[in-house]
Design a protein around this nucleic acid. Structure first.
Length: 272
DNA sequence: ACCACCTCCTGATCGC
DNA sequence: TGCGATCAGGAGGTGG
C-alpha cells in the first residue's frame, strides 16, 4: 500500500514504541526480505538499539547503534508490535525480539526488502545511493525537474521514478497530475514551466494533506500498525473510473501507462 | 538507449 | 460453485 504519506504514518507510529529498545534476538522466516547478506544481517543486528527512526521517500530508516536498518514495504509490507507470546501468524517473516515485546514484519506478497547499511554509507550504498528528492524533506525546484524530465518518457512514468522524486506512487501520481491538469501521457520534454511548477505545488500540497490524513486506505487490506488512513475521501480521480470529474463532470477514464493503472479526466487533462 | 514485458508472491475479485 | 484469468498502492531486470 505504501507511498510517502503511508510510510510516514508508519514511521510516526513506530517512533512511539521503538526508541531506546534493544534487539536481543531476531528470527528471519523468509530470506527473500533480507536484501543484504543474511548472515551478516542476523549477526550485526543483535544488541543494536533503536536510536532514531526517519524516512526518505518510501524507505523507513531505523537508525541503530552501529548501522542503519533500511526497510521498503513495497506493496504490502507492514509492521506490528506484539507480545512475544503471541503466536507467529502466516505472512510474518521477520521477528525482532526486543526487551518487552516483539516487532514483526508482515508481508503477504513478500515483495518488501530490508537492508543493513553501514553508518557512514547511508546515502552511498543501496538502496539510497541514487535516490531522488524527497519532496517533503527537501525542496523540489523547477530547474532540477526540467532537467530530469527532459526526455520522451510519459510524465506519469517520470513521477513514479524514485530516482527523480522519491515517495510518489501510483495513487498520488494520478492525483498530482489531475490537480496539475496534465495528461498522464504527456511527454516530459513537452511540459511547460507552468506544468512543472504545478507539479511542484500539488506534489507538496497533496502529500502534506495525505500525511495529515494518515495516508490512503483503498481495497480492504487489513489496516497495519497506524495505517488506517482517510485520504481516500479526498481522491479525485484514482479509483474513480466511471465517476464524474469533480471539476467538469466528464467521466473519469482508466487506462494503463507503463503498465500501471492510470485514472484521469479526459477533459481537464487534455492533450498528450 | 529505450520500451514493452516479465519477475518476485499471494489473495481478492471478475467473468464465464 | 468452480475455475482460470486478471488485477493490486512497487521496482528491478531482460531482451528485442
Amino acid at each position: 500500500m505504501p507511498e510517502l504519506p503511508e510510510v510516514e504514518t508508519v514511521r510516526r507510529t513506530l517512533e512511539k514504541s521503538l526508541l531506546k529498545k534493544k534487539i536481543n534476538k531476531i528470527k528471519v522466516l523468509y530470506d527473500g526480505i533480507i536484501a543484504t547478506n543474511k548472515k551478516d544481517f542476523e549477526k550485526n543486528i543483535i544488541n543494536q538499539e533503536f536510536i532514531n527512526i526517519t524516512r526518505y521517500g518510501k524507505f523507513i530508516i531505523f537508525e541503530l547503534t552501529d548501522f542503519y536498518l533500511v526497510s521498503h514495504l513495497r506493496m504490502e509490507g507492514k509492521f506490528f508490535i506484539k507480545k512475544e507470546s503471541d503466536p507467529i501468524i502466516k505472512h510474518e517473516h521477520i521477528i525482532f525480539y526486543l526487551d518487552d515485546f516483539t516487532l514483526r514484519y508482515h508481508d503477504t506478497r513478500k515483495f518488501g526488502k530490508m537492508y543493513l547499511v553501514k553508518k557512514d554509507r547511508l546515502y552511498l550504498d543501496t538502496p539510497l545511493a541514487n535516490i531522488g528528492i524527497d519532496p517533503i524533506i527537501k525542496e523540489l525546484d523547477t530547474k532540477y525537474l526540467k532537467e530530469k524530465f527532459n526526455n520522451s518518457k510519459h510524465i506519469k512514468t517520470l513521477l513514479l521514478d524514485q530516482n527523480i522524486i522519491s515517495g510518489i506512487g501510483n495513487i498520488y501520481a494520478d492525483e498530482i497530475l489531475f490537480s496539475s491538469q496534465i495528461n498522464p501521457n504527456k511527454k516530459g520534454n513537452k511540459l511547460s514551466d507552468n506544468d512543472i511548477n504545478n507539479i511542484i505545488k500539488y506534489t507538496k500540497e497533496i502529500l502534506n494533506k495525505a500525511i495529515k490524513e494518515k495516508g490512503t486506505t483503498i481495497r480492504s487490506y487489513t489496516s497495519s500498525l497506524g495505517v488506517y488512513g482517510n485520504y481516500q475521501k479526498y481522491l479525485k480521480v484514482h479509483t474513480k473510473e466511471g465517476n464524474p470529474c469533480p471539476i467538469c463532470g466528464s467521466i473519469i477514464i482508466k487506462t494503463k501507462v507503463n503498465g500501471r493503472g492510470t485514472y484521469y479526466c479526459p477533459n481537464c487533462q487534455k492533450g498528450d
